[in-house]
């Protein structure tokens, strides 16, 4: 029933605004989610999401169609987010970049803590608003690029191939970046769950 993205894009190009509205409605929620995960501010996330769609519309002629529409849309979204975060930080300080070639050390979070506590289906566990808050908090503590890849993977469910295209990085980098991002967020979440009693080895980022 649903018209595919590329057909809608073609319709937009031929001047059909309604088609664009459909694209907006299709992706607004996920684009917003990614933006929210990135900037952790509802209003700002909303602005970014709007801006992303406006940009997409404006540059639709530059969209080649060789990648899927949404990888392009998310790339634009993530880039806007990074710009916003840069501006927020002002002139001081450069984002702490994580060296992806680093092997993850032995300072892992309490092994098995998350899994034991939450199981593989967190929907079952009493996941409340505060936990959603905590997740955003945890995300805020990891570098932007880690945040971005995690969000695109988990919120959008992108494949590594799509992640590589969206973030314009090699596929091998996707693998290691995602791994590092996960380990970091895991530590933070474990801490929140107060499962890491000794608090040893919890990252200070």
């Amino acid at each position: 029933m649903a018209t595919d993205d590329l057909t809608l894009v073609k319709r937009v190009r031929s001047g059909d605004q309604r088609a664009f509205r459909l694209l907006v409605e299709r992706y607004q929620r996920k684009v917003y989610s990614v933006a929210l995960g990135m900037v952790r501010d509802r209003e700002e996330a909303n602005d970014i999401a709007q801006e992303a769609f406006v940009k997409v519309y404006k540059y639709l002629d530059h969209f080649k169609g060789d990648s899927s529409f949404y990888t392009w849309l998310y790339r634009i979204t993530v880039n806007i987010c990074i710009d916003v975060l840069r501006k927020r930080r002002g002139m001081k300080g450069v984002a702490v970049e994580y060296d992806e070639t680093n092997q993850v050390g032995t300072s892992e979070a309490n092994l098995g803590a998350l899994g034991t506590r939450l199981g593989t289906n967190p929907q079952k566990s009493a996941l409340r608003k505060e936990l959603a808050e905590k997740i955003q908090e945890a995300l805020e503590q990891v570098p932007e690029k880690h945040r971005a890849i995690l969000l695109l993977r988990e919120v959008e469910g992108m494949s590594y191939e799509e992640l590589a295209r969206t973030l314009e990085i090699p596929k091998g980098t996707v693998m290691s970046r995602l791994f590092h991002a996960r380990i970091k967020v895991q530590k933070i979440l474990s801490e929140y769950l107060e499962l890491d009693e000794s608090k040893s080895g919890v990252g200070s980022e």
Partner: peptide, 10 residues
């Protein structure tokens, strides 16, 4: 667990 948590949290 983390993956699911992130997904549901977002």
């Amino acid at each position: 667990a983390e993956s699911g948590l992130l997904r549901v949290g977002m």
